[in-house]
Computed example of a mutant assay.
Amino acid sequence: MSTPINRSTPIRLGTRRSALAQAQSGHVAAALEKVSGRAVELVPITSEGDTNRASLSEIGGQGIFATRLREALLAGECDFLVHSLKDLPTAIPDGLVIAATPVREDARDVVITRGGTPLHQLRTGSTVGTGSPRRIAQVRRRAPHAEVVDIRGNVDSRLQRVATGELDAVILAAAGLSRLGTDSPLRREELGLAEWPTAPGQGSLAVETPTDAPEELLRALAALDDPDTRLAITVERGVLEGLDAGCQAPMAAHAQVEGDEIRVRAVVYAPDGDRRIGLDVTEPLNREYIRRNGSGNGADAADGAYPMRAARELGLVVAHRLLEQGAADLVSREHSSS
Rank of each mutant, 00 (worst) to 15 (best):
209 T>M: 04
304 G>K: 06
93 P>E: 14
120 H>Y: 12
275 R>N: 05
215 E>Q: 13
276 R>G: 10
160 Q>W: 09
156 D>R: 15
142 R>V: 15
202 Q>D: 12
323 L>S: 07
274 D>Q: 14
289 Y>K: 11
265 R>G: 00
137 A>Q: 00
275 R>L: 13
33 E>Y: 02
104 R>N: 10
289 Y>R: 13
21 A>P: 05
28 V>K: 01
120 H>W: 12
266 A>F: 09
293 N>I: 10
20 L>N: 03
175 A>Q: 02
108 R>L: 10
49 G>R: 01
72 A>I: 01
87 D>L: 11
61 G>C: 03
5 I>Q: 12
24 Q>V: 10
167 L>M: 00
305 A>Q: 13
59 I>M: 06
244 D>W: 06
249 A>N: 04
274 D>L: 11
202 Q>C: 05
39 A>M: 05
294 G>W: 12
44 P>W: 00
333 R>K: 12
241 E>R: 12
155 V>I: 14
318 V>D: 01
142 R>K: 14
206 A>F: 01
87 D>I: 02
325 Q>R: 15
205 L>C: 02
61 G>I: 03
134 R>F: 05
100 A>M: 01
320 H>L: 09
142 R>F: 11
131 G>F: 09
298 G>E: 00
322 L>W: 05
59 I>W: 07
309 R>D: 12
333 R>L: 10
241 E>C: 07
289 Y>F: 15
60 G>R: 03
60 G>H: 04
134 R>M: 14
264 V>E: 00
308 M>K: 07
144 P>E: 02
252 A>S: 09
92 I>N: 14
142 R>T: 15
328 A>M: 07
62 Q>G: 13
309 R>V: 14
239 V>S: 04
330 L>I: 06
338 S>C: 09
198 T>D: 04
178 S>T: 15
218 L>A: 11
26 G>H: 01
126 S>K: 08
287 R>T: 10
7 R>E: 13
151 I>W: 06
238 G>A: 00
212 D>R: 03
146 A>C: 13
275 R>S: 13
312 R>P: 08
124 T>G: 11
179 R>T: 09
262 I>T: 07
31 A>V: 05
236 E>K: 01
158 R>S: 02
185 P>A: 00
166 E>C: 01
116 G>S: 10
95 G>K: 01
46 T>Q: 08
312 R>I: 06
122 L>F: 07
276 R>T: 10
